[in-house]
C-alpha cells in the first residue's frame, strides 16, 4: 500500500467539465488524499508547514491541473516556490522528499497530435514538462510520465467517461503499489498502463 496525495490546482473549477468528471471518480480510500489548493489558498498565502507535513505523510505526489499556457496555473507554481524549500526539499540536507514518486495529471485543450514538431504546438508534452521533471530531479524524487486527458474541448461525454475510468485504474494501481516501476522508462504517458481494468 502506498499513500497518494493529489495536489489539485484549478482557478475556475466550476467551469471545467473534464476536471469535474475526473474528480468525481477519485476513489474514496483512506490512503488517497485530495488537496484542493485554490479552495484552501484563494489569497495565495500558502501554509508551508502544513504542506510540508502533508508531503512527508505521502509516498506518491500527483500534480493535477489544467495545462495553461504550457504550464500549471499560478497557484501550483506558488506552491512549488514556497513549499519545496532549500535545505528541506533540495540542496544540502534537503532530502525530505527523497525517493517519493511524483507526476503530473493534466487536461489539455488541444489534442495530442498538435504536440509535436509538425503540430501547431510545435513541442512535445515531455518537452513542456521539463521544469517539473527537473524539479523532481533536484528533490531526488522519481518523476513518472504524465497522465493526460487531451483534446478536452472536443471530448464527448463517453470519451470523458473512458478517461475517468483510466484515472480510477491509475489511482488504484498507485495506491495499491501494483505498478511496475521499470516500465516507466518505456511508456510516454501513464494512460498506457491503465488501458484495461485491473
Amino acid at each position: 500500500m502506498k499513500k497518494v496525495l493529489i495536489l489539485f490546482a484549478h482557478p475556475r473549477m466550476e467551469k471545467s467539465r473534464a476536471n469535474n468528471t475526473l474528480l468525481k471518480h477519485i476513489p474514496s480510500a483512506a490512503n488517497i488524499t485530495f488537496h484542493d489548493l485554490y479552495e484552501l489558498y484563494p489569497d495565495f498565502n500558502i501554509d508551508v508547514e502544513t504542506e510540508k507535513q502533508l508531503l512527508l505523510e505521502h509516498d506518491i505526489i500527483i500534480w493535477q491541473h489544467p495545462f495553461y499556457w504550457y504550464s500549471c496555473p499560478p497557484l501550483m507554481k506558488q506552491w512549488m516556490d514556497m513549499v519545496l524549500e532549500f535545505g528541506w526539499a533540495y540542496g544540502p540536507g534537503g532530502t525530505a522528499l527523497k525517493d517519493k514518486i511524483v507526476f503530473n495529471v493534466m487536461t489539455t485543450g488541444g489534442a495530442n497530435a498538435t504536440y509535436n514538431a509538425e503540430g501547431h504546438n510545435r513541442f512535445t508534452i515531455q518537452e513542456y514538462l521539463r521544469p517539473f521533471e527537473q524539479t523532481a530531479y533536484l528533490c531526488k524524487m522519481k518523476y513518472f510520465p504524465p497522465f493526460l486527458v487531451q483534446g478536452s474541448h472536443r471530448l464527448t461525454d463517453e470519451e470523458l467517461q473512458r478517461f475517468s475510468k483510466q484515472y480510477v485504474i491509475l489511482l488504484t494501481k498507485m495506491s495499491e503499489g501494483t505498478f511496475e516501476e521499470s516500465r516507466m522508462n518505456e511508456i510516454r504517458f501513464l494512460n498506457e498502463i491503465c488501458m484495461k481494468p485491473v
Binding site: R12, K15, S16, G109, H153, R154
Partner: peptide, 16 residues
C-alpha cells in the same frame, strides 16, 4: 471570462 474553458469549448464546437 478568466479560465472559462466552457466558453472556449462552445466556440470550438461551433467552428467545427
Amino acid at each position: 471570462h478568466a479560465w472559462d474553458s466552457k466558453e472556449m469549448r462552445d466556440k470550438i464546437l461551433e467552428m467545427d
